[in-house]
């Protein structure tokens, strides 16, 4: 009986220990300060993307969607070059933190199993390439993502 108890407990403990990392562990791995990242989201994004990331009224939905953009280099860069990101009053380091936080917070099923985190040098490089026709560009990228099998909604 004792042995069974031990085995049952071990199974439960190991399923937690070897399962997906906790949100706190993700913050540590990605060097995110969650209070700061959330504040920046609230001050600079939430007004239009709303607290759940769903957007609406012409504002794209990020919930269960934004992670698909990490699968194609151009689409990943779009997340940096989109006016709300590129023109925000954040330096490159803070924008990297915010984008990593957005993926953890809103990607859900769309989050790839592994993805390299956004870094300051990547942000600096992509921000230096202005994006003029944002709606057209997004349209093209979503077509590409759909063709590659990622169910992004236009």
């Amino acid at each position: 009986m004792f042995a069974k108890t031990v085995i049952a407990s071990l199974l439960i403990v190991s399923s937690i220990a070897f399962g997906k990392e906790t949100r706190q562990e993700s913050y540590e791995r990605l060097e995110i300060n969650p209070a700061r990242a959330k504040f920046n989201y609230q001050m600079l994004c939430q007004g239009c993307h709303i607290p759940t990331g769903e957007g609406g009224r012409g504002v794209p939905n990020m919930l269960n969607q934004v992670g698909y953009f990490l699968n194609i280099t151009q689409a990943r860069e779009y997340l940096i070059r989109v006016p709300g990101s590129a023109n925000s009053a954040l330096n490159d380091e803070r924008l990297a933190e915010l984008l990593n936080w957005v993926i953890l917070e809103f990607a859900q099923q769309s989050e790839p199993e592994q993805w390299p985190p956004f870094t300051q040098p990547e942000i600096t490089a992509a921000r230096a390439e202005p994006l003029f026709e944002v709606v057209q560009h997004r349209h093209k990228l979503v077509d590409q993502l759909n063709a590659a099998g990622f169910p992004v909604v236009q």
Partner: peptide
């Protein structure tokens, strides 16, 4: 009874 208690208790403590 004991296995049941251990499973419930074991699940709650690490969670």
């Amino acid at each position: 009874k004991a296995v049941g208690a251990a499973m419930v208790g074991g699940a709650a403590i690490p969670l």
